[in-house]
């Protein structure tokens, strides 16, 4: 059971925070901040879990999630979605698209960590 996470996020400070939290728990953290190329990166890296922001430059997190769920090889990949737009309709939309878990920013560090663990079966 690997501990490989791909963080797709464009806010440098948030990237820094999550990287710190997860790497201290022994995770290998890769980051990607461009929406357009994010899906290809997922396919290339084959991480154990994807942490996905919604508001990304180039392409929205929802579109990337849809592509992941449509891909036969990636459809079972756990996706933790983080968004600063914590509105109900965003949550519903993410759930309709098959998100594994949906969390609003600002999040609690322990919650993110435990969610990543749970979703990867740890």
């Amino acid at each position: 059971m690997g501990k490989h996470v791909l963080l797709i996020e464009d806010e440098p400070n948030i990237i820094e925070a999550i990287r710190f939290i997860l790497s201290r728990d022994g995770w290998q953290v890769d980051t990607h901040s461009d929406g357009m190329t994010a899906f290809d990166r997922v396919g290339a890296l084959r991480p154990d879990i994807v942490i996905l922001d919604v508001m990304l430059p180039g392409r929205s997190g929802f579109d990337i999630l849809r592509d992941i769920r449509a891909d036969p090889e990636l459809c079972a990949l756990p996706v933790l979605m983080l968004t600063a737009k914590g509105q109900v309709k965003d949550r519903e939309m993410a759930e309709r698209m098959g998100v594994s878990r949906f969390m609003a920013k600002p999040f609690s560090n322990t919650e993110v960590l435990s969610s990543v663990r749970e979703l990867t079966g740890g």
Binding site: E11, N13, I14, A17, I18, F20, I21, R24, M55, A84, K85, G86, Q87, A104, K105, P106, F107, S108, N109, T110
Partner: peptide, 26 residues
């Protein structure tokens, strides 16, 4: 409102995350 929410939550996310890191005394 959604924009404002986003603009407010983004810095707050960083603030919360790092202040939690500092608080844990790691």
């Amino acid at each position: 409102l959604s924009q404002i929410s986003h603009e407010l939550r983004t810095p707050m996310t960083s603030i919360r995350a790092f202040s939690e890191i500092l608080m844990t005394g790691a």
